[in-house]
Nucleic acid binder design. Sequence first.
DNA 1: CGGGTTTGACCGGCGC
DNA 2: GCGCCGGTCAAACCCG
Length: 331
Amino acid sequence: MSSEPRDLFYRSQFYDDDDDHQQQQHGLGSSSVSQDHQFDPPQMGTFIDCLNGGFMDYNSLEKAFGMSPATSSEVFSSIEGNQKVIIGEGDHHNLGSENMVTQNSSISSSSTEAGAEEDSCKSTKKDGQLKGSDDGGDGENSKKISNKGKKKGEKREKEPRFAFMTKSEVDHLEDGYRWRKYGQKAVKNSPYPRSYYRCTTQKCGVKKRVERSFQDPSIVITTYEGQHNHPLPTTLRGNAAAVAAAGMFQPSMLMSSQMSNFNPQEWFGTYLPSINNNNQQGSSTTTTGAGSHVVFPQNMNSIDQQYQQQLHDYGLLQDMIVPSMFPKREP
DNA sequence: CGGGTTTGACCGGCGC
DNA sequence: GCGCCGGTCAAACCCG
């Protein structure tokens, strides 16, 4: 595992949202937050739930972001400062490489429900896989059998993913879970390789891919796939758990599973300044603390007209953007 | 020694 | 059918 970005862990004390269930404005009503200020989304619980095992569940996402069930969607945000983050969700996996045109098939397919299973293809192969590929031993004759347990003609369901972009020097951002790297591949048309990680927890089939945007090498694109069927490991060093979503959230947020009524509208409305008078990219900036800024587009139009370009600049395909992801800002 | 990383090979889907 | 390419495997290696 690579080193985690320090600044993500070294944060000053911050609300522990225990008492803040009512999604008040937390005194941050004025959209833009100062760099030194911790940003404090009212009820991130749902979103955290998404990360913490549920993020593959559309319902969760819908709840979390108020998105329409009819659309897969994505959140795009960027941060100015140490970290730039773009979060998103969808079933694309060609983040960061525009030529890596959709090959949706070979992704893991664990049915989204249980989240426990390894993807069907591997589970047939060897269940101890997560424990360490080397203890399997049966290596040679089955070297690459991999019928992957997939029936012919039976297409694996496309599993939605959750991706976000982070401006960071380190590739592998700590997100509170423990990951084991199981592969690395060169990405076509990109000088930066893509790394493949799997959650080390037994029976947890969550995977993630990490790659750098070839357009902007300072941006790390992390794509999660699957859902954790276990709580965050408790033995993480530092406040690793805090950095879920690439430093967007504070430890307290992550842990606040009780914060179940996060209202995205409210959150976005509160923390996202009007894009109209914001930067030229049509985004809103807020601070996540530790000098990180999150920039969210404010509404559909902004995404369509302004963020598409930015996404494109970042190497994201335009069709990743789903407008409904971003609720209109409440007055 | 256990757990994680590296790395080359293999597999399967997809486009031509 | 073939080649390309993303994804995965697993032996070898590394490290604390």
